[in-house]
Design a protein around this nucleic acid. Structure first.
Length: 283
DNA sequence: ATCCCCACCTGGCCGC
DNA sequence: TGCGGCCAGGTGGGGA
């Protein structure tokens, strides 16, 4: 489900409700998510207060007092809901509710049909976490710039599509926004990433454009509240609407939306995942 | 190293 | 209506 803009939307939705609340009770389902539940998760978090919530790439970091942080990833189908406590029916367990955190005034519920999500607990700096430490720069940050990006492509030999899905090169992008950013940059997804840099690892024009278009599409999607496909919704139940702005994603056999193009959107499979692009515009 | 492929899951949709 | 097959926003881990 969720790429950077969707996770940012979820993070903003949670932030409104759960900061400064204390964890009173926790329920874990008997099924594990991607990995087994952290040892002693319940006893470690109960009684602690939520002091901040951040996003890094597609991860949500819920920091508690006493230096603890919950690190969470939504996988493909995860979602959070915040319910008002002591409402007539404050919580009725639904299918695929795997984590329920009762706070002072709210109940935070994590639902995940496919259970590809990930939840961990650490008492170290979240950035040092084994998965977070491997992440590349965030789009829209200073560390995501054409020179460093070009340098990270040195000695790489794979398609630009697969390169952009690699979270250690640039983090937070997924299948949708990679397809959209490549379209906006007029780059063919199958192009080898090495062709976008010089032999010395300096950025060529197209790579500079790509950096700008990645930032552009991510910013627009965040402003739209993310994309809503199938079951994704933000914590307040409102839907993001960026899916209405897709140029290529899930538009196989439809016309290219650029007026002067006349091409048709194609779907190909790269490393087992669908890529949508216009072969007429994207060279 | 680097890259590719698989596995992990459920559910929705399409064609027969 | 049922059923098999295919597809889905991700990614760690293992093998080549």
């Amino acid at each position: 489900m969720p790429e950077l803009p969707e996770v940012e939307t979820v993070k903003r939705g949670l932030e409104e409700f759960i900061i400064n609340e204390t964890i009173r009770k926790v329920y874990l389902s008997e099924l594990k998510l991607r990995f087994p539940w952290p040892k002693n998760f319940i006893s470690e978090v109960v009684g602690k207060e939520i002091v901040s919530i951040k996003r890094r790439a597609k991860y949500i970091i819920i920091s508690l007092n006493q230096g603890y942080s919950i690190i969470a990833h939504l996988g493909m189908s995860g979602s959070y809901k915040v319910l008002k406590k002591n409402a007539p029916q404050d919580y009725i367990r639904l299918k695929h509710d795997h984590l329920v955190i009762e706070l002072d005034n709210f109940i935070l519920v994590y639902n995940d049909p496919r259970r590809f999500g990930y939840i961990d607990l650490t008492n170290k700096e979240p950035e040092k976490h084994k998965f977070l430490s491997l992440l590349g720069p965030e789009p829209l940050s200073n560390s995501f710039n054409e020179n460093d990006f070009a340098g990270s492509l040195l000695n790489k030999n794979k398609s630009i599509k697969n390169t952009l899905l690699d979270q250690s090169i640039v983090s937070g992008l997924g299948n949708i926004y990679v397809c959209e950013a490549l379209f906006r940059s007029k780059i063919n997804p199958k192009k080898n990433c090495s062709k976008l840099i010089t032999s010395k690892g300096k950025p060529r024009e197209k790579l500079i454009l790509l950096v700008n278009k990645i930032n552009e599409v991510i910013k627009e999607a965040i402003d739209a509240g993310g994309s809503t496909l199938r079951d994704f919704s933000s914590t307040d139940g409102k839907m993001g609407y960026f899916q209405t702005s897709f140029y290529v994603y899930d538009r196989e056999n439809e016309k290219c939306l650029l007026d002067d193009c006349g091409g048709v959107i194609k779907r190909v499979v790269q490393s087992g995942r669908s890529t949508f692009f216009c072969s007429n515009c994207q060279k």
